[in-house]
Amino acid sequence: MALIAVIDDDPDIIEASSLVLKSKGYHVVTATNPDDGYKIIQEKKPDLIILDVMMDEPDDGFFLAQKLRREKIKTPILMYTSVSKTIGMEFGAGEMVPVDDFVEKPISPDELLSKVHFLLNKE
């Protein structure tokens, strides 16, 4: 079963997401900041990365996504956002931010699972 990394600074979101993913048999690794996130990606080589925007971190989720792509890590990224509309972030995935899809919080279990399923089976 696929391994999914969940990187979010909100431990409650991590727990809720993890439980949803685990209920479908996915394996989950987690991190609460971009630095730790980068480490687990390097070490565990997940099949999919769920990455929060984490606006208030100095090196935010955007930064991590760009860093991964610069390093030729092509693992699909699903980005969690919370205020994409208010800050005018309606640009398409893959353009300014090298991620495969966006999903706006709060996320229903069904939506999360269908996006995860789609991204894992894209290839």
Binding site: D10, D12, I13, A16, V20, S23, S82, P106, I107, P109
Partner: peptide
């Protein structure tokens, strides 16, 4: 978002 996540999780048939 966190609270909604918890609530949906609590109600989810699959989980």
């Amino acid at each position: 978002s966190a609270v909604i996540g918890f609530l949906q999780l609590s109600m989810d048939e699959n989980v």
